[in-house]
Amino acid sequence: MPVRLLVTNRAKTPRRKFLGLVATAAASAATISCGGSRRPWRFLSTDEALTLSAISERIIPTDQDAGAAAAGVVAYIDRQLNGPYRRFRKTYREGLLAIDNASAARFSRRFAELTAEQADQLLNELEGTKPRFFQLVVAHTMQGYYGDPRHGGNTDAVSWRMLGVPTVPIRGRWKYEKPPWA
């Protein structure tokens, strides 16, 4: 299956690709005011982002230091779902829905509206019943929180400062011509 995919990639000529792009542009030019939606996310819906934010906040909760939500973990995940993590889109769409459904069934509320205790209780269960999705979210949350700010998370290097790692470390270079006092 991936073999065939590789072959199709190959067959695409640049000209055809260009025409395809123009067609896309044309088709969408009318709806250039894609406005109205005004959501800051590219892949996630506002509801999904709320749920994901609430989950990530239980994975790395706010205490004296910022938690996952304030560190922009959702921004990280949303950006990767449009990049290298495109392959996890379906997993997220289904996984987040399942969590909200489980929350509704148990507490008659959306996950984002649960108390910390309720949320932890649900997530602990989920860790056993849906381990693949849960572990994925844990890993991605850790990446968004502890990873490089350039990828959309770890806003203002909040986790690095928490750990005491100098952000943008001060490093001079050895000079061939040394100043006289060195």
């Binding site: 994975i59 909760p61 850790m142 990446q143 502890y146 990873g147 986790s159 690095w160 750990l163």
Partner: peptide, 21 residues
């Protein structure tokens, strides 16, 4: 590096939540 260190926690530290932080 910080993210790499996440995977270095011993087994008796929970993988997530306040205890991990």
């Amino acid at each position: 590096l910080p993210y790499q260190f996440v995977g270095h926690a011993p087994n008796n530290v929970p993988r997530w939540g306040k205890a991990h932080k």
